[in-house]
Design a protein around this nucleic acid. Structure first.
Lengths: 225, 225
DNA sequence: CCAAAAGTGTTCCGTCTACACCCATGG
DNA sequence: CCATGGGTGTAGACGGAACACTTTTGG
């Protein structure tokens, strides 16, 4: 093996996942208590080390799969965190990734098995290492992007009501939205399609179910809400 | 030394700098030909390895200082690049950083000594490894941010004319801007202050010089242009 | 005297915001 | 029959876009 860079030092690289879910009209993050040293017992994001045979993105997807059993999930890099002493054990540079999942797709047993919990973003405790910074940066990015990219649908089932969709925006942006104005805007977006299905769970009258037509969006990928 | 993570592998981590400058009404990037193997002779960003005694941000600032002699420069992380084979030599994960400098602050001799050149972003050649991806991502971020953060001033001298400022926006956004509308918006921004100095270099009539009052901005850091 | 860049207002149009009532149904 | 959430339109305010001429002065 040719060794070009021997005079330099190698470091551990990890990935940490900020996994967002939407439940009970609130934006939540998956957090657990660390099951290893250093930092055993502290609240923490779920993460893992990057191995030789995988890219950063692959590592993030593997970690997400390990935890949730879910594949082909929306994931985006949040940034690299590289303070010297960020990890109390050894030098570890970590790359944070943000994922958006539909809470109902996550098997409850698997969640309990990994001992992670959905924590409201307004009630996030002090976390291990710099994980609070990671979560805050992820929230900032999510807020900035949710109005210019069709991200919200990742937090909902395939079929959703307009009220649910509005609640997602209200939870992410932490602000109230006028119902009529919201629905007016949705009507102008062709690829948010009304289906003939009716949701009777959350209302007596029943609410029309909509779907995001990804193919139609892809033909003209412009999103503004 | 306690070793917690021995079962995992370490990798080299580098930083690469996308250094933007504004010259001749154009947005440019500092590029040079690689002076080491692998990839010797290929066009490339300027970079360096992250050492044990420095954070990622420190490493990026050190590399920038090595190249330009400049300190306290606006720098922002662009993202981590971690494909397995991105470096043809060995596994190297690289974190890209974007810097904005005033071209006139960069000593020409130092520039020639390092054999780097200002290349118009419209004429960027094929670059080493994934450096084209890094540059493209940096440009995308810069475009997104220049209208909501006071970045443009970093590309200009302390005193600048409104025409110069407009040219910066036109170069970054690659679009023409209406002069009257532009100046109207500038007038509403209190912390872009007209000075009593006149620039007689680029016009016979002379143009008023303005400055960005960072202290005034910091008191109420809202920027919208 | 003329070329070259600086400087300056108004009108129009589209977009965003505020706002309140009726509808359908399950219990 | 009533409590609960679903669904609908209009008017006024505001902000962005289009647009052309006068001023100054060095050469």
């Amino acid at each position: 093996m040719t060794t070009y860079y021997n005079e330099h030092s190698k470091v551990f690289v990890s990935v940490d996942c900020i996994i967002f879910g939407f439940e009970d009209k609130k934006l939540k993050v998956l957090l657990g208590k660390r099951k290893m040293d250093p930092g055993r017992g502290e609240w923490s994001l779920y993460g893992g080390f990057v191995e030789e045979n995988e890219s950063l993105d692959d590592a993030a997807n593997r970690v997400l799969l390990e935890l949730t059993g879910l594949k082909n999930i929306y994931m985006k890099q949040v940034g690299a965190f590289g303070a010297i002493d960020r990890d109390p054990g050894e030098r570890v540079i970590s790359v944070a990734y943000c994922a958006l999942i539909n809470v109902k797709d996550y098997d409850e047993e698997l969640r309990e098995e990994h001992q992670v919990e959905w924590i409201n973003i307004k009630d996030i405790p002090e976390l291990y290492s710099d994980h609070n910074d990671m979560v805050n940066k992820a929230i900032t990015l999510l807020r900035r992007r949710i109005s210019s990219e069709p991200l919200s649908f990742n937090l909902l089932p395939d079929l959703f009501t307009l009220t649910q969709l509005q609640h997602v925006y209200e939870a992410v942006l932490d602000d109230n939205i006028d119902k009529r104005n919201f629905r007016k805007r949705i009507k102008t977006i062709e690829y948010i399609e009304k289906t003939d299905r009716i949701d009777k769970i959350t209302s007596k009258r029943g609410a029309a179910l909509y779907r995001f037509n990804k193919e139609a969006y892809m033909e003209d990928p412009i999103f503004k809400l």
